[in-house]
Computed example of a mutant assay.
Amino acid sequence: MTETVSFGYADVAPEEKTARVGGVFTSVARSYDLMNDAMSGGMHRLWKDRFVRRVKPRAGEQILDMAGGTGDIAFRLAKSGAAVTVADINPAMLEVGVDRAQQRGIDGLVWTEANAETLLFPNRFFDAYTIAFGIRNVTDIPAALREAHRVLKRGGRFFCLEFSTTLWPGFAQVYDAYSHRIVPKVGKLLAHDEDSYRYLIESIRRFPDMPTFERMIADAGFVNTHVEPMLGGLVAIHSGWKI
C-alpha cells in the first residue's frame, strides 16, 4: 500500500481511513436506505435488482456478500435458494441487517464481522463473491480483490456494483452539482449527519474510473473481466471469473 490513501478528498494514513470509514458507517447505519435513496434518487433498488440478475445465484451455491451488512443484496440472492454469508467490517451495519431479516421473516443467512482485506474463510470455498457499493470504502482495494480471488472456487465469479463517473455530456455536470450541493444537505435533514454524506460523495469522485478498476480486477487474478455501465457509467457492474 502507499503511505496515504484517500478519505474523500483528503489523503490520510491507511489506519486512519479504516477508523474514519468505520465511524461514517456506524453513524449512517440506521439511515442507510435513506442515504442510498438520496445519492441515487431511489434508483439503487433497480440497480441492485439488475446486479443480482447478472450474478445468477442458484440453489445450493455458497455465496459471500461482502460489505453487505444491511442485507439489501443478500435478501435478493437468498430468494434463489443459495446459501448466503453476509460479511461486513462494521457491526452496526450487521445489526441493521439482522433486524431487517427478522422483520421480513428471512432465515438461513449467515452474518459475520469480517475485513475484506483479511478474510478468515478457507481457500476456494465460495461459488460467487458479491460486493455492492462497498469496495470504494475499503482501505487496501487490491488486497480485498486478491482475497476475493482466494476464497472463490475455480470457476467462481466475482461481481461488484459501484458508483463511477458518468461519461454522458451534460448529465455529468448536473449530477456533480446535485451530489455535492444537495446530497449532504439531505443527509443533514434526514439523518442529522452532513459530514458522512459529504464523504460518501467525495469517495465516489476519488474511486478509479471504469477501465482502471477493471485492470485492478484482472491484476488480482480474474479473467474474462467485464464492465457494464449504467447511466453512462454513473454506476457500473464489474465482473470477473476465477479459473
Score class of each variant (00 low, 15 high):
residue 6 S to A: 15
residue 73 I to A: 10
residue 131 I to Y: 03
residue 144 A to C: 07
residue 103 Q to I: 08
residue 9 Y to G: 10
residue 126 F to P: 07
residue 72 D to F: 13
residue 6 S to L: 11
residue 31 S to A: 14
residue 81 G to L: 11
residue 75 F to L: 09
residue 81 G to Q: 00
residue 12 V to C: 09
residue 60 G to M: 04
residue 128 A to L: 00
residue 148 A to E: 07
residue 32 Y to M: 10
residue 89 I to H: 11
residue 22 G to H: 00
residue 21 V to K: 07
residue 17 K to S: 02
residue 125 F to V: 03
residue 81 G to T: 01
residue 101 A to N: 01
residue 11 D to I: 03
residue 20 R to C: 05
residue 15 E to H: 10
residue 117 E to D: 04
residue 46 L to H: 06
residue 30 R to C: 05
residue 97 G to E: 01
residue 116 A to P: 07
residue 145 L to T: 00
residue 141 I to M: 12
residue 16 E to C: 06
residue 39 M to G: 10
residue 80 S to D: 00
residue 63 I to N: 02
residue 52 V to A: 04
residue 144 A to S: 13
residue 117 E to A: 08
residue 6 S to G: 05
residue 129 Y to P: 08
residue 143 A to T: 10
residue 134 G to C: 05
residue 66 M to Q: 14
residue 13 A to Q: 03
residue 97 G to S: 05
residue 54 R to S: 12
residue 54 R to P: 04
residue 70 T to N: 13
residue 51 F to I: 01
residue 55 V to P: 07
residue 79 K to V: 12
residue 108 G to F: 10
residue 68 G to P: 14
residue 3 E to G: 07
residue 8 G to Y: 06
residue 151 V to I: 15
residue 66 M to P: 12
residue 49 D to V: 10
residue 20 R to A: 15
residue 86 V to L: 09
residue 24 V to L: 06
residue 30 R to A: 13
residue 15 E to Y: 05
residue 19 A to P: 04
residue 33 D to W: 08
residue 92 A to R: 11
residue 91 P to C: 09
residue 44 H to A: 04
residue 14 P to G: 12
residue 86 V to Y: 11
residue 21 V to E: 01
residue 102 Q to I: 13
residue 53 R to C: 08
residue 3 E to A: 13
residue 25 F to W: 08
residue 13 A to P: 03
residue 132 A to Y: 01
residue 90 N to I: 02
residue 45 R to F: 06
residue 71 G to E: 08
residue 28 V to W: 03
residue 36 N to R: 14
residue 149 H to G: 05
residue 81 G to M: 05
residue 46 L to T: 05
residue 25 F to D: 04
residue 93 M to I: 01
residue 99 D to S: 11
residue 18 T to G: 12
residue 10 A to H: 07
residue 79 K to Q: 15
residue 30 R to M: 04
residue 75 F to K: 08
residue 17 K to T: 00
residue 140 D to H: 14
residue 127 D to K: 01
residue 27 S to A: 15
residue 140 D to C: 09
residue 33 D to M: 04
residue 92 A to C: 11
residue 135 I to N: 03
residue 140 D to Q: 08
residue 118 T to R: 15
residue 51 F to N: 01
residue 12 V to T: 04
residue 93 M to F: 05
